[in-house]
Design a protein around this nucleic acid. Structure first.
Length: 190
DNA sequence: GTTGCGATAGTCT
DNA sequence: GACTATCGCAACG
């Protein structure tokens, strides 16, 4: 099954504040190899002044990429068992990033099921940060990858459709938890 | 449908 | 040595 998609999002798309990029990533298509999915949930992390952000601890070996140029992948290992996928935003030195929290699978669904488990339902294949990374086969090997090149990119959707975006506080953090920086594609009423 | 909890390892203090 | 940008399962209703 082939799925029509539009152009790769250019570097300048990412060279803006994380909150704006996070909102505009909703409805775009994450593509890696033969797998792809519509981005339906993101969170913005705002750099050094945002205590919930990894960049708040400053420049370390782990956080180097967040302080680099926009449009690169920041992947980290969490809770001893999950990878989480972020894309760096804004300008070098700022430390902005967007966490990709959930996808709606589009293609390569059988590949995703091989990675996630044979009995997993489509809607649960990538319905969380750790699940998204597992379904797409994202690991530390993707740390620093340029998301405007290669076979791991974000594209415009093939067909533009109207949708609404809900904005809520971020999930699973203990600091700065009240900021409205989580963006969710609102499913059309069935 | 919901809530509660244990697993597990890298990173920083 | 504490903490974590999580998940899946088990128990319940």
């Amino acid at each position: 099954m082939s799925v029509r998609t539009g152009r790769i999002l250019p570097r300048r798309f990412y060279q803006r504040a994380a909150a704006i990029v996070a909102r505009e990533l909703i409805g775009k298509v994450l593509v890696k190899g033969g797998t792809s999915g519509i981005i339906v949930e993101t969170e913005a992390y705002l750099g050094e002044n945002d205590l919930a952000s990894h960049s708040a601890v400053g420049l370390t070996k782990r956080t180097q990429v967040i302080f680099g140029p926009a449009g690169h992948a920041y992947v980290y290992f969490s809770y001893g068992m999950h990878y989480c996928m972020n894309i760096v935003a804004h300008s070098p030195g700022v430390g902005d990033a967007i966490l990709l929290r959930a996808l709606e699978p589009v293609s390569g669904i059988e590949t995703m099921r091989e990675r996630r488990g044979a009995s997993i339902r489509d809607r649960d294949l990538a319905s969380g940060p750790g699940k998204l990374a597992q379904a797409m086969g994202i690991t530390l090997e993707d740390y620093g990858h340029d998301m405007t090149r290669g076979n791991f990119v974000v594209r415009e959707p093939g067909v533009e459709t109207a949708f609404e975006i809900d904005v809520t506080p971020r999930i699973g953090i203990s600091k700065s938890k009240d900021l409205p920086l989580r963006f969710v594609l609102r499913r059309a009423a069935i």
